[in-house]
């Protein structure tokens, strides 16, 4: 029994040393425009900041108007300097209104996460 606990302790102490740098579920940390926020102006792109690196080839982001109409947008791409950020360029500047963003991403370790949020353009 005591040997078993010693093994657990050793594993825990070794864990921070052996862990890779960027593996985990990718949760949305924040976004621009922000989750639930009201922005002025007409945004031309969405930026989603995740807690982990995201593989854009297996990820999707959709933007809908308040009426449920799909807003034309590019496929998500990573920020060249940071794999935790994905960028979606909008096909047109968004007029005032409330928009819903639904995202589904696959992190670099293949965990999938998803979510929905809205923002308002004043």
């Amino acid at each position: 029994m005591h040997r078993f606990v010693k093994l657990l302790l050793a594993a825990a102490l070794a864990a921070p040393l052996a862990a890779p740098a960027a593996f985990a579920h990718a949760f949305l940390d924040h976004a621009a425009p922000g989750v639930g926020m009201t922005v002025s102006g007409a945004p031309r792109e969405l930026r989603l900041y995740f807690t982990q690196g995201v593989v854009t080839a297996f990820s999707h982001v959709h933007v809908l108007s308040a009426a449920g109409a799909a807003i034309p947008a590019s496929k998500p791409v990573n920020d060249p300097s940071d794999q935790t950020i994905i960028i979606v360029r909008l096909g047109r500047a968004l007029p005032p209104g409330t928009y819903t963003v639904s995202w589904h991403v696959v992190s670099v370790d293949t965990h999938t996460t998803q979510g929905i949020f809205s923002f308002t353009v004043s």
Partner: peptide, 16 residues
């Protein structure tokens, strides 16, 4: 607040 930050409304860094 983890859920709120990602899906409803952003909250400050520590609280999320």
């Amino acid at each position: 607040l983890l859920y709120m930050n990602s899906n409803v409304h952003e909250v400050p860094e520590f609280f999320r």
